[in-house]
Amino acid sequence: MARLYQRPIFVLSVFAVPLLTFVAPSWAGLSGVAPCWAVLWLMPWSLLDGPLSGFIAGIALGLMLDGLSTGGFSHLPALMFLGWWWGWIGKRGALIERSLNLGLLAWLGTMLIGMSFFLQIWFLNNDFSGPLLRYWSFHTTLSQSILTGLLAPMMSSWLMLIWRRRSSI
């Protein structure tokens, strides 16, 4: 494993996620829906650094992003699982760096986050579970996952490249 967590500058790069969530650049969004920045950062980190580090990074990101949103549902369960899962995939075989594979992993991850939000809304807030809410959830999940899947080959592979070069593996 790459031991990225030993480099403070790599660890500090996690703060790009809340910053991008705040700034929400309109050119990166699709009709107002922003890509899932947490996935774009967490995926390369876990793939290079292993399941435990990915799991902890997932918790850290989840806590930060939950603090910055109005609440109702939480990032934590999905991001914890994704950090561990991507770390497990990265540890298992050859390094994943093909654009298509990265895009697919990011797409699956964002779908999973969307589904976890939908299930949390569904179970925690029974009183407003109308059809409109379902359409909105699926629309947001689909558009966000497609957008993240398209951006991942560019941004995540770039992050992986930098991190691998600087930690020399």
Binding site: F22, A24, G32, V33, T70, T140, Q144
Partner: peptide, 14 residues
């Protein structure tokens, strides 16, 4: 309004 999200999962202003 220094940060806004009005279409994704959260509908909020900062």
């Amino acid at each position: 309004v220094i940060s806004r999200s009005y279409k994704g999962w959260w509908h909020q202003f900062l």
